[in-house]
C-alpha cells in the first residue's frame, strides 16, 4: 500500500508474516518429503542418522511405481491431445458466437470441474459396464471396462474445462477487427486461423496443454475406478504404497515427480507468464 511504502510499518510486517506463513504451510509437506528421500535409515525418525542417495536407485526396482509412471505419461499425453483437439475449437466458437445454446454449452463444458471426481469416476465406471453389456449384445467381444481407452477418455473429459478456460482467457481483449482485416484483404478463413488467430492464442494453448497434462498426470480419484486389473497410474501406485508404509523409497519417487513438474512449469513460464493464466 502506498502509505506504507515510506516506512515499514507494523501492519506491513504483519501482512508479510501472515502471507509467508501461509506460503510456508503450503510448502511444508513437500519440504519434508524431499528431506526424507535422503535419510540414511529406512524408518522416518528424527533426527536422521545420516544422508544417502541410495533410495533413488532402490526406487527404480519398484515395478508398480515405474509402470504407474509410464502409464500416467501415456494417458496424460493422449488425453491432452484429445482435450486440445476438442477444447481449442470450442473455446474459439464460444468467444465468437453467442446464441441461446452456446451459453448453455459454455456452462456445460465447465461441468466436469463441478461434478465431484469420485462421483464422476463411479458414473463412468457403471457406464463402461453398461457399454460392455451393449457391445456384447451386438456380438462384438471387445472389453470396455478397465481398458486404457476408457481411462484416456475419462481423463480427456476433465481436461476439457481447463483447455476451454485458458484458451478463452487468452482470447479476451483480442481485437477481432484484425481477423476481419485479413479476410477483407483476401485471406481464406483457414489462412486467417493459421496466420492470425493461432499465433494470438498460442500462449493460451501452451498453457492449456501444460495444465491439461498435469491435471491428468496428478489425477487420482477418477483413475481409481477406471484402471483395469494389473494397471496402475503413478498417483495410485504412490497411494497404495503409502497405505502400507512410508519410507525414503516412496519419498524419492515423490521427489522425482516434484522435479519433473517443477521443470515443466519453469519451461512453460518462459512461454507464458504463469501470473497471467492462473
Amino acid at each position: 500500500m502506498l502509505h506504507n511504502s515510506r516506512k515499514p510499518s507494523w501492519r506491513r510486517l504483519a501482512l508479510d508474516a501472515a502471507a509467508l506463513s501461509s506460503l510456508a504451510f503450503i510448502l511444508v509437506p513437500l519440504v519434508f518429503v524431499t528431506w526424507l528421500a535422503f535419510f540414511k535409515q529406512e524408518i522416518p525418525s528424527f533426527p536422521p542418522e545420516g544422508y544417502t542417495f541410495h533410495w533413488f536407485s532402490s526406487m527404480l526396482t519398484q515395478k508398480a511405481i515405474i509402470d504407474g509412471f509410464v502409464t500416467s505419461i501415456e494417458v496424460g499425453v493422449v488425453a491432452t491431445l484429445i482435450g486440445l483437439a476438442l477444447g481449442v475449437p470450442a473455446a474459439l466458437g464460444l468467444v465468437r458466437y453467442t446464441s441461446w445454446w452456446s451459453g448453455a454449452a459454455s456452462t456445460f463444458l465447465l461441468l466436469p470441474l463441478v461434478v465431484p471426481a469420485i462421483v464422476l469416476g463411479t458414473a463412468i465406471y457403471v457406464a463402461e459396464v453398461e457399454a460392455e453389456i451393449l457391445v456384447y449384445g451386438f456380438g462384438i467381444e471387445t472389453p470396455v471396462i478397465g481398458t486404457i481407452g476408457g481411462l484416456i477418455a475419462a481423463h480427456a473429459l476433465i481436461v476439457i474445462p481447463w483447455v476451454v478456460r485458458l484458451v478463452t482467457a487468452s482470447l479476451v481483449g483480442f481485437d477481432r477487427s484484425i481477423e476481419e482485416a485479413a479476410q477483407n484483404l483476401g485471406a481464406t478463413p483457414f489462412a486467417t486461423l493459421r496466420r492470425i488467430t493461432l499465433p494470438v492464442i498460442r500462449p493460451g494453448v501452451v498453457a492449456a496443454a501444460l495444465f491439461a497434462f498435469v491435471i491428468s498426470f496428478s489425477n487420482l480419484e477418477l483413475s481409481l475406478f477406471l484402471v483395469g486389473a494389473g494397471r496402475t497410474t503413478l498417483p495410485i501406485a504412490i497411494l497404495q504404497y503409502l497405505e502400507w508404509k512410508i519410507d525414503p523409497t516412496i519419498a524419492a519417487a515423490s521427489v522425482v515427480q516434484i522435479a519433473i513438474i517443477a521443470a515443466a512449469m519453469l519451461v512453460t513460464d518462459r512461454f507464458v507468464k504463469l501470473t497471467q493464466v492462473v
Binding site: L23, L30, V31, P44, V214, P235, L239, I261, V278
Partner: peptide
C-alpha cells in the same frame, strides 16, 4: 512466488499427505 503456490497443486494429494505423515508420526518430526 506464484510458481511456489501453483507447483504443489500438481504434485498430487498423496505426496502431500506423505509429507504430513513424516511430521505427525509417533517418531515423526
Amino acid at each position: 512466488m506464484v510458481i511456489l503456490v501453483v507447483l504443489p497443486l500438481f504434485i498430487g494429494n498423496a505426496v502431500r499427505a506423505a509429507g504430513w505423515m513424516t511430521l505427525f508420526g509417533a517418531k515423526g518430526f
